[in-house]
Design a protein around this nucleic acid. Sequence first.
RNA 1: GACCCCGUAGCUCAACGGGAUAGAGCAUCUGCCUUCUAAGCAGAGGGUUGCAGGUUCGAGCCCUGCCGGGGUCGCCA
Length: 597
Amino acid sequence: MTDLRATLGEAVRAAFSKVGLDDAFGRVTPSDRPDLADFQCNGALAAAKAARRNPREIAAAVVEALAGHPAIAAVEIAGPGFVNLTVSEAALSARAQELARDDRAGAPYVPDPRRVIVDYGGPNVAKEMHVGHLRASIIGESIKRLHRALGDETLGDAHFGDWGFQMGLLIVACHDEFEDLRPWIDLQGEAADEPTMTRFFEAVAPRVGLADLDRLYPMAAARAREEAEYRDRARRATADLQRGRLGYRLLWRHFRDITRAALERDFHALGIDFDLWRGESDVDPLIPGMVGELRDQSLLYEDQGAQIVRVARNDDKRDVPPLLVVSSEGSAMYGTTDLATILDRKQTFDPDLVLYVVDQRQADHFETVFRAAYLAGYAKEGSLVHIGFGTMNGADGKPFKTRAGGVLKLRDLIEMAEDKARQRLHEADLGSELPEEEFEATAHQVAVAALKFADLVNFRGTSYVFDLDRFSSFEGRTGPYLLYQAVRIKSLLRKAAAEGAEAGEIRIEAPAERDLLLVLDAYPHALLEAYDKSAPNLIADHVYRLAQAFSKFYAACPVLAAPDAAARGSRLGLSTTALRQIESALDLLGLEAPERM
RNA sequence: GACCCCGUAGCUCAACGGGAUAGAGCAUCUGCCUUCUAAGCAGAGGGUUGCAGGUUCGAGCCCUGCCGGGGUCGCCA
């Protein structure tokens, strides 16, 4: 399977070699002037500059070396030395059959598969998920799917925040709130027998639910800010928990279990599923050993009462602060946990690459942690990469807030999107004949598509403005538009099947067919670019372009009413292939199209 | 203060090693439903790419300065 761009690129690189120039100049790109050609190579201009020669002369030599290549119908020199390439009918047709037969719709494999962990989502026990988690989850899920689809052995890890001060706060809050549970919460010791544990959970589970955590945590957090005494109690509870005090440990397990179950449900509804839920608590036992090892490696320094690893380098343009491993109070910091997580991953999975899909604002933090990990030999230089993203902003350009000024909960956001989707479907009189259940499922899919596509269509590094009306529109570059296009093709194929019409050999005749095929051909390159840059927006761009190219084809070339059986078979083949590729790309974005709407 | 990112059409965003006429979508305007979902298609208008210099045959992209916005700068995560 080779796409036309790669085929031509190979040919042009060979031509540059043949005339004695670096083959890197033979880079081929889709034409900027589709009215003139399908592809172009600007290498003659760059080569001319390097060799102080006339670009048109070089272009002429390259063109001569290309003569007779079977994939090229025409090659012309334009302007100062652009080489314009038009694909031959034979190559076009061969590529069409290849794509039609490929059950991956053109998706490539990477040449050297790696072991990859995508660290994303970052939900916390007790803290409600908010829009900040949404971006991490949407982008991370897409990157994970992309790596997996292209052949990497890939794990997605939620990196569950289950271990900090907030646990102590919750324990104290529960202790105060549930008087009758105190004997259980105060349970001493470090280990329990089965019957004790069973009785513990029988007593606690019916009383302490998610709603309690949602209610108690903000209250406790606020109170800890005000009252030093309360804060100290929570700190002590945190320390006791981490030391293994039985009642706290069991209560904490309960917090963690119910939170995780709810989170998994919420994520799943968004098409986001993790392979691992390794929590901060899982790596806590590694920390003492790790600290000792860092000391043995002479990486640890004492500074202002804290234990630090210095990571600054001579060529740094700014002050790079050290990694704080043990605070002056003797506790582990979040950088400590992150470093221990790197160690844990090395021991359990030994990844070639770890991608951290986390807010761009934490770039400095990760730089520090990564440097420390490289120094300690916990990861190979360059194998840890922070995939930063910008914020989702409100209409004022500032990070999104509710009207009351608070952080918008993820659940509320999704509900808003579903309401909007229902409203839009009704306005367009769509899905009115669907059964209630299917209509609701469709509304959910439309809502999810609106939110996720709006996020993924922007380059992850830039911030974007949240505008539900725009995202939920069925017109233009939106998720719902893409679902609509997919559904329209599905409907067409159902009708064809009912008439007994079958896909046949694809013949590229009409301009709209040629344009569609060229877009289909560009899929592997789009995916490899997206892979290299961890940039799902390139997949979003591609699928939108594809949907548009199909729509033009659909308007210009009747399928069922094609002039003859061969043309109908050909157009059905193109439609089937386009649908498969749209669905493939949507899947990589974490989206799914309904059967009808 | 230091460092990083951003500034492109009225709005939201593109522009793939520095290359041809800076592209899409929304909004506005004009056509097209007795044919497969018009949530569509065809077309039009809309730009001194923040400002000023520089490098280059050629700059939205590279360099310098300035203006404006955002972010980060060890014991929260």
